[in-house]
Computed example of a mutant assay.
Amino acid sequence: MSNRPIRIGIGGPVGAGKTSLIERLLPLMAADDLRVVVITNDLVTKEDAARLRDSGLIDPDRVVGVETGACPHTAIREDPSANLGAVERLSRLYDPDVVFVESGGDNLAATFSPDLVDYWIFLIDCAAGHDIPRKRGLGVLKADLVLVNKVDLAPFVSASIEVITQGMEEIRPNKAWLLSSLLDKEDVQEIYDQLRQQLPF
């Protein structure tokens, strides 16, 4: 392997959009000739890995699923050995520029070990409630980038983008965060531009 790849963690609750984010970023990275591998975490299945393998967006051999058991945050924080092993194997085989490590769906307290990732993104679903920022979960507080995702759904679930924005500005005054809909190409491009600004691809 020529250089150590950049390891990007993708965390957040179930259904926040973690796998969808990777699916949206893969074409943009391919356009920049970046070599990417993906590690997904699920409790007792490898559903997210299968979804990415079947997507046609990446060579299926470059995707590995890790079954984490009953405690998804353990595998990305307290004992990331299974994920580190997967990183090492894929890095040895494919010499990637970027390794995505997608957490299993977890709660707002999930964080990544610095031994596992260099940078991590935490997604929350605004449709789950506009009070999420005020709950001050560790993921929202400590992530390098927070995405308040599914803003397109806010009008349908009585979620106030204004309240969410106020909460995010209060708890992350000097840290990066974005409102996003992964169905919007401009939002996805903004996320990718943010990564390009903060990471040495």
Rank of each mutant, 00 (worst) to 15 (best):
M1N: 14
S2M: 09
S2Y: 10
S2P: 10
P5G: 12
P5V: 09
P5A: 08
I6K: 12
R7I: 15
I8M: 01
G9E: 04
G9R: 02
G11Y: 05
G11D: 03
G15H: 09
A16L: 04
G17H: 01
K18M: 06
T19W: 03
I22S: 04
R24K: 15
L28Y: 10
L28M: 13
A30R: 15
A31S: 14
A31R: 12
L34D: 01
R35S: 14
V36P: 04
T40D: 04
T40L: 12
V44P: 09
K46R: 11
K46E: 13
E47T: 11
E47Y: 06
D48C: 06
D48V: 05
R51T: 12
D54A: 15
D54K: 13
G56C: 14
L57D: 07
I58P: 09
I58R: 13
D59T: 04
P60C: 14
D61Y: 13
D61N: 13
R62G: 04
V63Y: 05
V66D: 09
E67H: 04
G69D: 08
P72Q: 06
H73G: 00
R77E: 15
P80D: 02
S81F: 07
S81K: 15
S81N: 10
S81H: 15
V87A: 09
E88S: 14
R89L: 15
L90W: 11
L90R: 05
S91G: 12
L93Q: 13
Y94I: 12
Y94L: 10
V98P: 11
V99E: 02
V99T: 09
V101K: 03
V101M: 04
E102N: 01
S103G: 14
G105D: 06
L108N: 03
L108C: 05
L108E: 10
T111M: 08
T111N: 07
F112E: 00
S113F: 00
P114D: 09
P114R: 11
D115W: 07
L116H: 02
L116D: 03
Y119V: 00
W120V: 08
I124L: 10
G129A: 11
H130I: 01
D131G: 12
P133A: 07
P133R: 05
R134G: 11
R136N: 04
G137C: 08
L138E: 14
G139A: 06
G139F: 02
V140F: 05
V140H: 06
K142L: 12
A143D: 00
V146E: 03
V146W: 07
V148Y: 04
K150A: 00
L153S: 06
A154N: 00
P155I: 05
F156G: 11
S158A: 15
A159S: 13
S160P: 00
I161M: 13
V163Y: 08
V163L: 08
Q166C: 13
G167D: 07
E169W: 12
I171F: 13
I171H: 12
I171A: 13
R172F: 01
P173A: 09
P173N: 09
P173Y: 10
K175M: 02
L179P: 01
L182E: 03
L182T: 01
L183T: 09
V188A: 08
Q189C: 03
Q189A: 11
I191N: 00
Y192G: 04
D193W: 02
Q194P: 03
Q194W: 10
Q194K: 12
L195R: 02
R196Y: 07
F201K: 01
